[in-house]
Design a protein around this nucleic acid. Structure first.
Length: 487
RNA sequence: AGCGGUAUCGUCUAGGGGUUAGGAUAGCAGAUUCUCAUUCUGUUGACACGGGUUCGAAUCCCGUUGCCGCCGCCA
């Protein structure tokens, strides 16, 4: 069997979209599963919308997700260049071949003429297809048009190609995920393959690139299905081997529209900035359409690759809901080795002076505050009381907790006892247990006792393990804050 | 409008001519803890609709509807 070669071909007109990341993942999984090659190609034929920043973002995001490519613009490969704008000189040859074979023709129509055709179609409630007005222009007519200064675009002759290679006007192909797909090509209009400015259009450039790069399987979004019919005909007209195609359902926003900015993050890098782990992201996105045979949903990309069968991917669209992503992210945060987590949390702790804590204290702080984190960024608001001398008391905490007589009594007792305590976490744990016990005998619930201390020391009624907090911030600060809360 | 795709709990999905239609997440309830959270246990919740085939349809067939996509000298 021939080598499996797949590709992801993003257009750098924006940061790497989460949908593109999923397409890239399925290509990557397919390559891994079949010992094939995963190729990255940058489709930047539209110079206006392209920027280097986007190209960098695509590279970085793909790498962060662990989707490493075997061939691409940066690493090279036998079928380069892998950036479309650097391939402009190789397309004309194939345009000429199509022209010579009679599968393409020059079109001198102006944008206005084309527009008129479209309006006519909408007026008659008919689907628009190009009229083929320029299909049979004589050499004299062309010369005349050229003399007027008109530059022709090149159109592909759909029906001619269809007739040359198929018995009827119905074109079929066997889709890797959707099964047999068919289309009446008489309903398709002759489309432009070379713009009048000499640059190739998407539908033409992809075919040439996929052919030259020996791509064996094209796995992409189902929004490309109609392009596929056109592209198959070009492959055939060129006498090239037609790759196998597989079309994935789309990722939709909760309102079933296209996932866009208005729904929140769309780019992988935005999710990362918000505090999502790339492991969680890629795992989550894999579950949109694919499901594990063993029911175990938490899996690394390599584990998924083992279990991956493209024919088992769901062929319907799926909705991107944050619930499960969030659950998965918090799960991955819990699983993260502590040293790694400490590093990943630092960008979200810049408003605090980390030098106030020793490394051991910082480690402990992360250990006791990681549990409730959904996003890495949640750490910011979870830890203010570990820093600074004083603490900000929430208004309701002041009135509901600190102002009560019980709390005042607890704090007075706490301050007087704690002066003499040995300030290690183990000892504090023991002492506080006894402390709670003493108040319990006076009819005060342990919960209430601890609330008083927690409120005074952290300014809040909820948070991490109280013993650990006291140990981390130290005896001096703990007592100072407690005293400050006593009236 | 036309063409194409698609349809199982709110969501992601498993399954598939006779099942208590399974799991995950979210929701709800309870247990545990100094609080919140975590964790654990329990629980609510689905085969779009109509016809056909059949002893029997959620499953097969046809149609309808909804939703998505495509109809560019964008990619």
């Amino acid at each position: 069997m021939e080598e499996v070669r797949v590709r992801i071909a993003p257009s750098p007109s924006g940061n790497l979209h989460i949908g593109t990341a999923r397409t890239a993942l399925f290509n990557y999984l397919f390559a891994k599963k079949n010992n094939g090659k995963f190729v990255l190609r940058i489709e930047d034929t539209d110079a206006e919308r392209t920027s280097q920043a986007y190209i960098d973002n695509i590279f970085d995001s793909l790498k962060a997700l662990g989707l490493n490519w075997d061939e691409g613009p940066d690493v090279g490969g036998p079928y380069g260049p892998y950036t479309q704008s650097e391939r402009f000189d190789i397309y004309p040859k194939y345009v000429q071949e199509l022209l010579d074979k009679g599968f393409a023709y020059e079109c001198f129509c102006t944008p206005e003429e084309l527009e008129a055709e479209k309006e006519e179609a909408t007026k008659n409630k008919k689907p628009y297809v190009y009229s083929k007005k320029c299909e049979n222009l004589t050499e004299e007519q062309k010369a005349k048009l050229r003399a007027e200064g008109r530059k022709p675009a090149i159109r592909f002759n759909i029906q001619k190609a269809q007739k040359a290679f198929h018995d009827s006007s119905i074109l079929k192909f066997d889709d890797l995920v959707k099964g047999e797909l068919h289309m009446d090509t008489d309903l398709l209009g002759d489309f432009v393959i070379l713009k009048s400015n000499g640059t190739p259009t998407y539908n033409f450039a992809v075919v040439i690139d996929d052919m030259l790069m020996k791509i064996s399987h094209v796995i992409r979004g189902e929004d490309h299905i109609s392009n596929t019919f056109k592209q198959i005909l070009i492959f055939e007209a060129l006498g090239a081997e037609v790759p196998r195609f597989g079309h994935l359902g789309m990722i939709l926003a909760p309102d079933r529209s296209k996932l866009s900015k208005r729904h929140g993050a769309t780019a992988v890098s935005e999710f990362v900035e918000k505090g999502y782990l790339t492991n969680a992201l890629i795992n989550f996105v894999a579950l949109l359409g694919w499901s594990p045979s063993d029911g175990q949903e938490i899996k690394t990309v390599d584990e998924i690759a083992q279990d991956f069968r493209i024919g088992e991917i769901s062929s319907s669209n799926s909705i991107f809901e944050y619930d499960k992503l969030n659950w998965m992210n918090s799960h991955y945060i819990k699983m993260l080795p502590i040293e790694e987590l400490k590093e990943k949390l630092k960008p979200y702790l810049t408003k605090y002076d980390l030098s106030e804590l020793t490394d051991a204290e910082y480690t402990r702080m992360v250990e006791v505050t990681r549990e409730p984190l959904t996003l890495l960024s949640d750490i910011t608001d979870a830890v203010p009381y570990f820093f600074g001398d004083d603490v900000e008391i929430e208004p309701e905490v002041q009135t509901d907790v600190l102002d009560t007589e019980i709390s005042q009594n607890v704090l007075k007792e706490f301050v007087s006892q704690a002066q003499n305590w040995d300030w290690t976490e183990e000892n504090l744990h023991e002492k506080l247990e006894i402390f709670r016990g003493e108040f319990k005998e006076k009819g005060i619930k342990p919960k209430v006792t601890m609330w008083a201390i927690r409120a005074a020391v952290t300014g809040r009624t909820k948070g991490a393990d109280m013993t650990a907090i006291l140990a981390i911030i130290g005896k001096e600060k703990s007592i100072k804050r407690s005293k400050a809360a006593i009236k």
